[in-house]
Design a protein around this nucleic acid. Structure first.
Lengths: 218, 218
DNA sequence: CTAGCAAAATTGTTCGACAATACTGTTCGA
DNA sequence: TCGAACAGTATTGTCGAACAATTTTGCTAG
């Protein structure tokens, strides 16, 4: 999954490295919700000082991935059903906006070409049997829309939401027919965007996410 | 960005205190955009260790208020015209959603009563001459809607945006007639919400924010 | 006046220390 | 036996000093 691997930049600070590692651990469920993250253990594992580790904690806390409770330290955040619901409402708005913006930028041929290239994968015929590959495709699709929308703040915020969604295990355990349906919806959304139809793109995107919510609640 | 952390910790840790102080300093323009925040100066001023200060920095960075550049430290973020525009687009979506949610909850008499009480100030007759008081009223109005909307994640994220907006000096230097117009719009939005008309509330809120954007760009 | 170099400032990170608070297991009295 | 007081341990919150790496500044020579 491409959102898990961290490109090792030379100038990556220790704080960045640790924060990324923790994020990965959180997403892969190595650290379970509710679990306490003991500083002594992690400084040992990552070979960093407590100060560095605590900076990383601060960052993850601001990202909403963990809670820091006074005198009890860092605790892996648990998302309630309600949290998931609230986040989905918000995400629908933002991704709807992204779809609308993307659609309205398709009059620019360069943007359109780039978008087409980015979403090429969704037109492939063979059925999605591999869950991991489907997730990559899904991730890539939404990412491509954000790129086309050309709103960096929006991209940044939606990136965060993506993390949360994965954290909440939404979209795991999708059945084959659910994936097929999702792929189908992606294509319809892509059509609307490519045809410069902001309203339709927006509406389809919202419906798409609503469906995903229903699947996850089932 | 801190979407999920809505629960305020009541114990005032040193990190919290410093982060709050820095936030205030940022908003009041005591620290100007582009300015470097020198650790030695601030540890001296706040009487905390570098570790504590750096934790606060980490938090502000995740909130998007400062940038941390390797080997150059914390730098007050400058918002470009484009950033402001992008944020406004996003804020319109989210506050529109909030207005819609709030309107749809007005069937609950308790919620309605609470909302009415919260926004009592906007019905006052005397003209808004004092910019500070207007800003408070404006802030209270949007806050009341978020409370009524009953979506904690949304409230949290919108709170962040508020910071950014102030950082971007949007909504400063409003003329008297602009304030009067804004108050007028607030009343129309409140009407729509109280009448349980989600679509109208949403639309009016978006128009309201769009107008604010135009004013700020002028 | 500029290039280049040395000195000073500043950051990134570590380590060890200490008090404050939370957790745990044990003992003691009813 | 049960539960409450207690003491010991674990863990966190914060500090201060230290050091290398990097950036910035100031000075000098050309």
């Amino acid at each position: 999954m491409n959102f898990l691997n961290s490109s090792r930049r030379r100038s990556e600070s220790a704080v960045d490295r640790v924060a990324d590692a923790l994020r990965t651990g959180l997403m892969t469920r190595r650290f379970a919700p509710g679990q306490r993250l003991i500083e002594a253990d992690l400084t040992e594992e990552f070979q960093v000082s407590r100060g560095t580790l605590r900076q990383a904690f601060s960052r993850l806390e601001s990202d909403g991935l963990i809670d820091i409770v006074p005198n009890r330290g860092a605790i892996v955040r648990q998302m309630s059903q309600r949290d998931v619901l609230e986040l989905f409402q918000i995400r629908s708005e933002l991704e709807g906006l992204a779809a609308r913006l993307a659609a309205s930028r398709m009059s620019d041929p360069a943007v359109k070409a780039r978008f087409k290239a980015d979403i090429a994968a969704i037109w492939e015929e063979q059925p999605r049997v591999d869950g991991g590959r489907y997730l990559d495709e899904n991730s890539g699709f939404h990412q491509a829309i954000l790129v086309a929308a050309d709103n960096q703040q929006l991209a940044s915020i939606c990136g965060q939401f993506h993390l949360h969604m994965i954290m909440g295990q939404v979209g795991r355990a999708l059945g084959g027919e659910a994936m097929a349906r999702s792929v189908e919806e992606h294509r319809h959304i892509a059509d609307a965007i490519l045809e410069c139809d902001p309203d339709r793109a927006d509406r389809l995107m919202r419906e798409h996410l609503l469906r995903a919510l229903q699947l996850s609640q089932a």
